[in-house]
Write a protein that binds this DNA or RNA. Structure first.
Length: 333
RNA sequence: CCGCCCUUAGCUCAGACUGGUAGAGCAGUCGACUGUAGAUCGACUUGCCCCCCGUUCAAAUCGGGGAGGGCGGACCA
């Protein structure tokens, strides 16, 4: 396989499938000399990875491919502040999460896993945090958190949370912050506040939020609706994908998205060079695609039937998830 | 600390005044129709009515106590 870095311009690799790049100039500058530059995603520890996690993981893999160092923050303190349980419980799920990321394909030697509690409780960090608390309004912090916290009424911990993310970017010595689009307001807050403390502003890169599988609207959520995760068996995947909303178009009416196409675009094509749609002769025989655009175009034209697209999607997702699924099984035995 | 409002199905809420063992919409599940899903029909499911004590033949409903959540309480007066 040709290294992606040679096959694609570094900038295109770094920004592919990104919903937003802040700012483009800053990222172009990074792309000009990516070696040794540090990028991160922070995750609240979870025992089971789902497609939302994997979307940002795909981006991290791109960045590794581009020559960057990747840091995964196992955000135990953040999870604690967001009411996710005791530190003990959070730690345990963090270890499971780490194992699944490695199984998924993040190069272990090139990926730095670090617990938030390893540095977020230091005196210097804490004093910086208090300084941020002093210069940030409640309103601003709450707005930054709105997408992240549940429907619950905001606690004091919730407004501290994004301020800590701001400091993480400095204390982890990063050059790029990565996150889903739901992290946008937090990163904007960070860009605004870091200079106030005398620190440098870093660029941010946001991945899209995949639409809900069954309705095609909003975002796929782990709390409600159908989520595809490392826990799913092959049969689960087939069933979930088959029940997905999938009109034969890339651009459904209204605000709706085609989640099946989105999964091809954001999860399958970035990890496979070639996709084979196995089709019985009565429907025209097998089809082969090496990029998302041609597959989407065929769905649009009717050449590719949604049912065949779904079967194929389930097969490839299964392949992506299989290593993590095995790892989970090991952990649990 | 004090005051007011809220708590009923997964969600949003009716029902409470006038006690009689719980409803709607949405969601969900299952069929029919489509070579997928959705839409559309057809059927179905769903409950410690926040907790405890009391009154009563009988309490979601009345009385008392408690919990959780929301909002308010400077001055002008």
């Amino acid at each position: 396989m040709i290294p992606l870095r040679q096959a694609m311009e570094t900038y295109d690799l770094i920004t592919r499938n990104a919903e937003e790049v802040v700012t483009d100039e800053e990222v172009r500058e990074l792309a000009a000399d990516p070696d040794g530059k540090r990028a991160y995603v922070g995750y609240e520890p979870s025992g089971v990875l789902h497609l939302g996690h994997l979307l940002t993981a795909n981006k991290l893999i791109d960045l590794q491919e581009a020559g960057m160092e990747v840091v995964i923050l196992l955000a135990d303190v953040h999870a604690y502040l967001n009411g996710k349980g005791t530190f003990e419980e959070i730690r345990e799920t963090a270890e499971q999460m780490k194992a699944q990321f490695v199984a998924y394909g993040l190069d272990e030697d090139n990926t730095e896993f670090i617990y938030g509690s390893a540095f977020q409780l230091d005196e210097e960090y804490t004093l910086d945090l208090h300084e941020l608390e002093l210069s940030t309004t409640l309103n601003r912090s709450q707005r930054a958190m709105a997408e992240i916290q549940g429907g619950e009424t905001a606690k004091v911990s919730h407004v501290v949370y994004p301020l800590m993310q701001t400091l993480d970017i400095e204390y982890l010595d990063l050059d790029l912050a990565v996150g889903g689009l739901d992290q946008r307001k937090v990163h904007m807050l960070a860009r605004e506040e870091l200079p106030e403390l005398g620190y440098d502003v870093r660029p941010a890169l946001h991945t899209p939020i995949v639409a809900d599988l069954t309705s095609g609207e909003g975002k796929m959520s782990s709390s409600d609706g159908v989520t595809i995760s490392m826990e799913d068996s092959t049969d689960d995947l087939e069933e979930k994908v088959n029940s997905a909303f999938c009109p034969p178009t890339r651009d459904p009416e209204g605000d709706l998205e085609n989640p099946v196409l989105e999964l091809f675009e954001f999860h399958v094509f970035p990890r496979f060079d070639e996709i084979v749609v196995e089709r019985p002769d009565e429907y025209g025989g097998d089809l082969t695609y090496d990029d998302y655009e041609s597959l989407a175009a065929d769905l649009e034209s009717g050449e590719l039937h949604p049912a065949d697209a779904k079967g194929t999607l389930a097969t490839y997702l299964d392949e992506l998830i299989a290593p993590g699924r095995e790892k989970l099984r090991d952990i649990r035995n």
